[in-house]
Amino acid sequence: MDAMVRELSYAQAIQEAMAIAMDMDERVFLMGEDIGVYGGAFQVTGDLVERYGADRVIDTPISELGGAGVAVGAALTGMRPIFEFQFSDFATLAMEQIVNQAAKMRFMLGGEVSVPVVMRFPAGSGTGAAAQHSQSLEAWLGHVPGLKVIQPATPYDAKGMLLAAVADPDPVMIFEHKLLYKMKGPVPEGYYTVPIGKADIRREGRDLTIVATSIMVQKALDAAAALENEGIDVEVVDLRTIRPMDKQTVIDSVKKTSRLLCVYEAVKTLGIGAEVSAMIAESEAFDYLDAPIVRLGGAETPIPYNPELEKATVPQVPDIITAARDLVKGVR
C-alpha cells in the first residue's frame, strides 16, 4: 500500500499522467502556448520538454483557433495530441474547431474516422485574474454531442481521467479548476484509469444529496462535515463527467435522500444545475422528492477583480451550509 500513501498535487498528477501517456504511446504529444521551457502558465507541463524534447512538447504561436485545428487534424490522421489552452476562456477563440470540427467529424463522415484529441482547459475564478481569465465554460461544450466533457475534482481523478481521455477514441475536453492545481492527495504510481461517464459518491448520507462539480466537490464535503454537527447527514455526489452524464448514480442518490442541491461555479442559469435538476424531474426520483430542487451557482455577472466581490460571485462553503440546512428544514 506504499504506493497509495504517496501524495501529489493535482498539477503534478496531470503532469505524471501526460508523461506516462507519452512513455506508453509514441503517438501522444503535447501542444499549447508556453508549455515548453516556460512549463505552462500554471506549471502543469513543467519540465516535460526537457524529458521528451521540443518535438513532443510543442510550443504553439498564440493561435488558439489554428492550434486547436492542428490538434484536430493530427488526431484525425493517427496522432494522439493533448492540447493545452492557457486559460479555458480562450476556448472562445477556438470554438469553431472544437464544436464544428472535432465534435462532428466522425458523425459527418459516417463513422469513417475518429478524432482522439484531448483538450485541457484551466478554468474557474479565485485567482484575481478578472473577467476574461476566470470563467467556467464547461456547460457550453457539454451542450455539444460528439464531445466528452470531464471535470476531475481530485489529484487521483485528474491522473486517472486524463489517462482515460488519452485512451478514448473521441474528443475529450478536460476542465481543470485552477485553484485545484495545488491541492494534494493520494495518487498511485504507474498507469491506471478512472472511467469517463461515471460519477462518484464522495460521502454517503441520508438527508440530502449534493451534486457538485470540480472545486465545489471539496466545498460540499467541507459543508457536509459542518452540517454533521447539526445532525444533518449529507451525501455528496461528484459528477466528474458532464457529458455523458451518469444519471443513474444521481437518481439512486436522490431516491435515497429525497432532497437535491446542485452546486457548481459556473453561472447559475442554463448550466449544469439546470440539466441535473431537469433530469431528476423527468426521472422516477421525482416522486421521491420531499422538497423543491435547489441550485447554487455563480452570480449572473462576469467575474469581478476585487477579491471580496470575486468570492461573493461563486458559491462558498457557508452558502452551501445555509442552502443545505434550509432545504432539509423545509425553509423556503
Binding site: 486547436a68 485545428g69 492542428v70 490538434a71 484536430v72 487534424g73 493517427g78 496522432m79 495530441p81
Partner: peptide, 25 residues
C-alpha cells in the same frame, strides 16, 4: 480525402495537423 467542410477555412488548420502527423510519423 479527409472531407469537404461547411465552414469557410475550417479545413485549413486541419490540413496543417495532418501534415504535422506526416512529419511526426
Amino acid at each position: 480525402n479527409l472531407g469537404a467542410n461547411g465552414i469557410v477555412g475550417g479545413g485549413i488548420p486541419i490540413a496543417v495537423g495532418a501534415a504535422l502527423s506526416s512529419k511526426m510519423m
